[in-house]
Simulated scan of single mutants.
Amino acid sequence: MMRNIHYQIDPTEFTGKRVLVTGGTKGMGNAMLHRLHNAGATVASTARSTAPENHPGLFICADVSVVSGTRHVIDTVMAHWGGLDILINNVGGSTAPGGGALGLSDEDWTQTLDTNLMAAVRLDRGFLPGMIARKSGVILHISSIQRRLPLFEATLAYAAAKAALSTYSKGLAKEMGPKGIRVNTLSPGFIETTAASALIERLADQQGSTLDAARDGLMQSLGGIPIGRPGRPDEVAELAAFLVSDRAMSVHGAEYTIDGGTVPTV
């Protein structure tokens, strides 16, 4: 059973910081957005759908998997704020069908790469010049443990794209560190977001099983989770808040895994 955790949040820690979290209306992105907002940041987020009623700060309706979408986000943020202090590239996922490698078309690969790699590349390219000019900024890329633990049935393209994102992030860190910009990667495992909970419910209905049994089945598909449960969006948000804060000033070019011990290798 998961315990309710009450975090101690400094409401002024991010005062004066302009933060963009892509995909900030649901799941981990929404948790990160609210965590930073509650700590004093001026926040913005993106999504392809409309903003929820409790959305804080600036909302930009855009599909960042396409060039025009990232351009719209960059132009809107620049018009409102003139730049960013913190960029969290959180958008990701896959709509590719099952069937393994031979079931993936060129279109599946292109869409997955655009969503999970090129969205971050384009947004970084748009906001980095201002960060370089100020000699200050933080970029956090949200990758996945699948970049080290790929699942071939339906998410091989996703795993490959996240591996590319992690490699890109490391190279970018080497280039940008001397310019005053920190770049890190956060790689979650199975996090029980609203979407994951809906998947668990569908599996339980299809299998005629309980929610606990369906959840356990998903965990076993990853090889098990040693702590015995999926992670929570607020736990990811807490780690992200640390990584983009001044408390992590010497953390650079690093990749932090939050997966409950799922990845079995060093």
Score class of each variant (00 low, 15 high):
194 T>K: 11
160 A>M: 09
4 N>H: 13
201 E>L: 11
62 A>C: 09
98 G>D: 10
70 T>P: 00
196 A>P: 01
73 V>A: 08
147 R>H: 15
54 N>E: 09
239 L>Y: 05
25 T>D: 05
111 Q>C: 12
151 L>V: 13
200 I>D: 06
115 T>H: 02
134 R>E: 12
15 T>H: 07
125 R>K: 13
86 I>Y: 08
238 E>R: 11
211 L>Y: 12
153 E>Y: 12
52 P>H: 11
170 K>L: 11
2 M>L: 13
20 L>E: 01
92 G>C: 02
3 R>V: 13
56 P>C: 09
104 L>T: 00
56 P>H: 12
236 V>Q: 05
140 L>D: 05
215 R>I: 13
71 R>K: 15
219 M>Q: 05
223 G>E: 06
14 F>S: 04
46 T>H: 03
139 I>M: 05
200 I>L: 02
89 N>D: 03
207 Q>W: 14
239 L>A: 15
50 T>Y: 09
110 T>M: 09
189 G>N: 05
179 K>D: 02
108 D>L: 06
18 R>V: 13
262 T>Y: 08
133 A>S: 14
113 L>C: 01
85 D>A: 00
223 G>C: 04
24 G>L: 03
140 L>V: 07
31 A>C: 04
100 G>R: 07
109 W>M: 09
131 M>D: 00
96 A>M: 01
193 T>N: 01
195 A>E: 14
217 G>W: 08
127 F>V: 09
16 G>V: 04
161 A>I: 05
77 V>R: 06
111 Q>H: 12
126 G>K: 11
63 D>G: 08
228 G>L: 10
13 E>L: 15
174 K>Q: 14
197 S>W: 07
32 M>C: 10
112 T>V: 06
